[in-house]
Every structure is written in C-alpha cells, then in structure tokens.
Computed example of a mutant assay.
Amino acid sequence: MTTWAIGDLHGCHDDLCRLFDRIALDPTRDRVWFVGDLVNRGPDSLACLRAVRDLGDTAVCVLGNHDLHLLARAAGARTPRSKDRFDEILDAPDRAELLDWLRHRPLMHHDPDLGYTLVHAGLHRDWDLDTALGVAAEVETILRADDYERLFDYMYGDEPEQWSPDLTGEARIRCAVNIFTRMRYCRPDGSLDLGPTGPPGTQPEGLLPWFELPGRANADLRILFGHWSTLGYYRSRGAYALDSGCLWGGRLTALALEREPRAVQVECEGAMVPVG
C-alpha cells in the first residue's frame, strides 16, 4: 500500500488520469491525499470533482480557496469572476450531491501513523498541532451546518492580518480561512501579507515564506500543502509544497509518503498561460 499526496488540480482531469496511470494507482490498496483546489480555471472541474468524490474512503481532500469559492458561488453569495469556470458544476444534474460532499471536506488532516499533516496553504506560526486542528474544526462546523451559507457573507477579505487566540466571531473565522487556504508570505511577527504571489526572492523586503518564520510552533510537523504554484515542488524545513503549476503548463506532482518521500510528476499542457 502507498499513500500519495497530489498537488492542486484546478480542473485538469486529463493530467490527473495520466498521473494515476504513472503511479499505477490501485484504489483497493492505495490511498490518495489531495491538497485542495480541485476546481476552477482548468478545463474539466466537474470531472475532477466527480473523480475524487468517487474514490470514496481511498481519498482524503482538504479544502482550498477555489473550492470554497465554488461553494460561495453556488450559494449565490458571489458574482462570477472573469476566470471562474464553474458553470459545468453548477449546471450538473448531481450538483447538490457534489457540493454537499465538498462542504464536508476538512480544512486540515493529520495522520499520526504516517507523520504528515495536510493543508491547502499552510499553518500559522503560533499554531501547534492541537491548536490548528481545533481552529480547523471551528470552520468545519460552520460549513457542515444547515445554514452554512452564512459563512460566505463574511469569509472574503484580507483583515485581520494577524491571528490572535482572542479573535472572535466573523473576524476569527475569516482570519482562519485565510491562513488555511490563502497564506504564502508573512511578516516576522506572523501577520499575513496576502498580496505577493511570486516565488521566494521576489517578495517585498521584510516578508518571509510562512514555513521559514522563526519560532514556528509547528516546526516539528511534516506539512504537505499546495496553493503556491510559483513555488513549485519544494521541500524545506518539514514543509512539502506540491502545487507544481499543472494549470499553468508545469507539472502535476504526486508524493509517495511511506518511507523516504518520493515524487512522481507528469508534464502538463496547461489550461492557462502565466502573465509576465
């Protein structure tokens, strides 16, 4: 049995199928972890969503910012963005079942036996494992409630930039969602700057990748994450970045987690063209 962790799909279903062939995935034996952002911008988000859902207990998938945006769009809380490609899902006959499955995905998964933690973007500097799991559970409880649509009335926005255990209400949940699904760079005090998206070395002075902040309470964890396509497949200080830019004509990465981590990649044609 092998557990594979796979980077952001963004609707690139053909590339996922080729990666499954490359790793010779056996759903009766293997397990697959997805870092989120199954959907949006790529050519076949509906097929990706169905494929991961249909893996059943073989798959673990955490929520990414684009997955949450799909749920917000479906709830009528957001107007379409120019790059959104959700219509095939929103018009699908199994729309309700797919969206219900999606909103019951976690924001964070930890496997103590394997010794890996799975999130979409990262963990705040001040969160140890128990704190992070507790904060994730707060958001998950809202998403799984009958009135979950209320989350999307206040989920969007960049404030507050700094997490504090004293945060309450909407500000607390919005900050938590930003950390789990949007974070890349932080200031040395742990506050977020959600603007820069380029690789390390291109950010404004005074910002650090979240996983390079000194004094991280979760530095003992091996954290698998995606979200940062310009970073590519990257390993540093117990952080494993898996978004290798499939959407942009890069690669789709699968990392075997048993024993010494081993990466397998397929080249991707790319549904979008990088700017610049």
Rank of each mutant, 00 (worst) to 15 (best):
D146L: 13
D100S: 15
I23G: 09
Y148E: 03
D15Q: 10
L151F: 04
L207R: 05
E97G: 06
Y116A: 10
P274D: 02
A5T: 03
D153A: 14
I223F: 04
L208Q: 08
H120I: 10
G76A: 11
R73A: 11
D126R: 09
D166M: 12
A5Y: 06
P106Y: 13
D243K: 13
D84L: 04
R18D: 14
A219R: 10
N65H: 06
T117P: 14
D153R: 13
R73G: 08
G215V: 05
E159G: 00
A74M: 10
L98Y: 12
R50I: 11
F152L: 04
Y185I: 02
I179R: 01
S236H: 15
V275G: 06
P274T: 04
S164E: 04
H66V: 03
L151Q: 03
G206L: 01
T141E: 15
L99Q: 10
G270L: 08
E269F: 12
V273C: 09
L208G: 00
P160G: 04
C175I: 00
V119K: 13
H120Y: 11
E212F: 08
P80Q: 11
Y233R: 14
L129F: 12
R125P: 07
A219S: 14
A217E: 08
R125E: 09
F152G: 06
L257V: 06
L102C: 10
C268E: 06
D87K: 15
W163T: 02
G76I: 13
L90Y: 08
M155G: 05
L46E: 01
G245M: 07
D14Y: 01
M1T: 14
M155A: 13
F20H: 14
D220Q: 14
T197E: 12
V273A: 13
P196H: 01
D84Y: 11
V264D: 15
A254P: 12
A239T: 13
I6L: 04
L102W: 10
S236W: 13
E97R: 15
N65G: 07
G195Y: 00
S229Q: 09
A263Y: 01
H69S: 05
G226V: 03
R81C: 07
Q203N: 07
P261D: 01
R103C: 11
W33I: 04
L38Q: 09
P93R: 14
V275C: 08
L213H: 05
D111N: 13
G226S: 03
R182C: 08
D37P: 07
E161T: 05
W163V: 03
P112W: 02
F34T: 02
V62L: 06
A171F: 00
L252D: 02
Y185A: 05
P214R: 09
L114V: 00
P209T: 09
E269I: 14
G11N: 03
T168H: 09
A132N: 09
C48W: 15
Y148H: 15
G56S: 09
G157N: 06
I142L: 15
L49P: 11
G190W: 01
